[in-house]
Structures are given as structure tokens and as C-alpha cells.
Design a protein around this nucleic acid. Sequence first.
DNA 1: CTCCAAAAAAGAATGATTCTAATTCTATTA
DNA 2: TAATAGAATTAGAATCATTCTTTTTTGGAG
Lengths: 122, 122
Amino acid sequence: MTKQRALIMNILNQSDRHLTADEIFFLAKLKMPSIAMATVYNNLNAMNDAGLIHRLHIDGAADCFDKITEPHDHLLCDGCGKISDFHLPSLSDTLEATLGHPLLSYDLTVHYLCAECQKGKR
Amino acid sequence: MTKQRALIMNILNQSDRHLTADEIFFLAKLKMPSIAMATVYNNLNAMNDAGLIHRLHIDGAADCFDKITEPHDHLLCDGCGKISDFHLPSLSDTLEATLGHPLLSYDLTVHYLCAECQKGKR
DNA sequence: CTCCAAAAAAGAATGATTCTAATTCTATTA
DNA sequence: TAATAGAATTAGAATCATTCTTTTTTGGAG
């Protein structure tokens, strides 16, 4: 656990949003101007591999990173791109039952229109 | 519907696998040597936007494209990278009920170990 | 204090994808 | 049939996120 990793972890923990590597880099640079992009990626990848954080791919955008509090799924508004979290606890069991063998994990992203975009009908 | 688009559509329809843009480009070039990569992407993007095919992102690999026969979800072996299809018809309704509002679509990828990799315990 | 290994820094390199500009089709109209 | 306009294609440059390579720094063990 290096200073850099602690800083990146902090930034993720204190954000309520999903951050791109670029945003994390920007925020990290405010606190530690010497930090390099490669360090951000190295640590994000290491933490992702260790299961401490979660890399989220959204079509047509840079990957986002997400602190992991509990397993959760994502809700993406196709109008404004806002991402929110939700969780369907029964899904894991349902999937194992359907497939007939154990699963390691799953990624679920639901596309919808948030209330504002629904109104604007974009 | 241009010749190029028909060719790309054919390649996707005749494949039982999920193909990357690169693979599609290679196969297309066999039949139509003058075809350009940009044309492949243009058409794949257009068809994806029109809902005729489906772009699938797999972490750490190039995006794949998939003909759409019926809505389906993906099963990814974390050992060998093999992709297969399955479908959980009830999920859409379950999600709408849980979220309390309509959804546009969803993407579900389940990670598991296929029978061979299970044996090899990679 | 010195040495070693691990991590970080810098910035070049990569690779998938998109963009731009120029060319070629296609379909329609005259 | 010829002319024209618009759309699609081509070629290849450009972009952007991400990774890689090399050098430098750091922090702990002896």
C-alpha cells in the first residue's frame, strides 16, 4: 500500500460518482502533482484484479472505476449518460439455477431513460 | 443496403462465433479486396444503431459483433475466453418490477469456467 | 549507511476506433 | 441517355484510452 495507491483509493471512496481514469488522474494531481498517469492505471488495474474496485465499461466512453461496497448492478440513462446503482440480490441464484453450473460473477447494465430525460423525450 | 453492407451482414449471419471488426474486415476482404476498414466500422456502427446487430464489449479485448436472432445474454469463460449465448426470459420483467420503471434494454454477461477449464483448473 | 527490490515517473508506443478529404456509386431527373 | 446531387466508400491520417519500456525514486533489510 503506497501513498499513491492510498490516494487513489481515497478519491474513489470519497466520490459518489463513477470516475474515469482521467478524472482520477486529475484529482490525484491536485494532491500529489508528481503523480503519473501510468501510476494511476497501474494501481487501478491492480486493485481491480484484486477485487477491491470495479472497472465498468460503457459503450462509447472511457472505462469508469467504482469503489466496491457490495455487489451491485448499473443503471445507465441513454439520454444523459448518468449512471446509478441498484442491486437484484436474487439474480445470482436464478442464474446458477438456469445455467446449471456455478458462476464466477456477472455484469449487468440496464439501459433506461431517467425521469428528466423521460420528460424531455430526448 | 449497399453491397458492402450485405457482405458484412452475410459474414455475420454465416458465422456461429462472435467476430471482431478485424476478423470481419479480413473475411470481407477475401470476397471484396477493395473494402476499407472504415466501411466495416461504418456499417457495423450503423447496423448496431439500427438494432440489427449487437456490439459486445469484453474486458481486455476488441469489441465483438453478433447477429441478433432473438434477445440473448452472454456467458464468458474466464479461462479460455469462449463466449456462448443463453437467455433468461423472465429477467426483463423482473428488472422492470424491481426498478419500478420501464427499461430500454439490458446487457448481461456472466463469467464462469467452462467444463474444460474447470477440469484444467486454470 | 548501503544495497536491493518494488513501485513510480516519464513519455514513447500500441491498437482499436473514428475522422477527414477525396473519390466513386446510385438513383433520379432532365 | 446524360447530367447532377447526395450518399456511401476508400484511404489513410488522427485520436484517444491504455499499456509498455526505461529510468529514477523510495523504503525497508542488513
